[in-house]
């Protein structure tokens, strides 16, 4: 005989949490350690380098990065607003906010692309200098996270949104979990911005 897995939607009474909530936070805990490793690399290489150069030495554009920070922060706000719209049972608002979130992610990647190509056109590659190696690796991995979050959000905006008709509670949980990941990606950028562009 077959039994359904409990607490996929409703919280377990003694923990007060559903499975998805625990799962996504566990994933984020491991992400903290992943970026911890990357930042540890940054610190050791920076203090140990015989020839450290800041980002400005390679013409990293602060205005572009500043814009990108605003773009990501905005997308974080629209993400929570998308979730809040579902709580208010306002599906069309959800669609709107989630759409903006995805577009902001796209905008972030477009700006990133402009930055990357401008570096390449000046002959700055990851192998050029240890700073650029860190810059490309850290922003590259962050970019992969942005693309992943954007992809899942796009799914929740498009085909995945059918679930709103059949299981609204579960769909709201999914949007919340996706949001947690998306905010984490924003959080990482909040640190990457000063570390790579300003210091």
């Amino acid at each position: 005989m077959s039994m359904a897995i409990p607490y996929t939607v409703e919280p377990r009474p003694d923990t007060g949490l559903n499975n998805v909530k625990i799962g996504i936070w566990l994933f984020l805990a491991s992400e903290v350690m992943l970026f911890g490793g990357l930042f540890a690399g940054y610190i050791i290489l920076r203090v140990g380098s015989t020839d450290w150069q800041p980002g400005s030495a390679f013409g990293l554009s602060v205005p572009l990065a500043f814009t990108n920070t605003l773009v990501l922060i905005t997308s974080s706000v629209t993400m929570v607003m998308a979730w809040a719209s579902l709580i208010r049972k306002d599906f069309s608002k959800y669609r709107l906010y989630m759409g903006i979130t995805v577009l902001c992610g796209l905008g972030f990647m477009v700006i990133k692309y402009i930055e990357y190509t401008s570096k390449f056109s000046h002959g700055y590659y990851p192998s050029t200098h240890i700073f650029l190696a860190l810059y490309f690796t850290l922003t590259g991995l962050h970019g992969i996270h942005v693309i992943a979050g954007m992809g899942y959000n796009a799914y929740l905006w498009g085909p995945g949104a059918k679930m709103w008709e059949t299981a609204p509670e579960q769909f709201t949980n999914r949007v919340e979990a996706s949001g947690l990941f998306w905010h984490f990606v924003d959080l990482v950028w909040i640190f990457l911005f000063p570390v790579l562009y300003l210091l």
């Binding site: 566990l26 805990a29 491991s30 992400e31 350690m33 992943l34 970026f35 911890g36 490793g37 990357l38 540890a40 690399g41």
Partner: peptide
């Protein structure tokens, strides 16, 4: 969960 990610990095 917490020890493997640094090797990933």
């Amino acid at each position: 969960l917490l020890a493997f990610p640094p090797l990933q990095a």
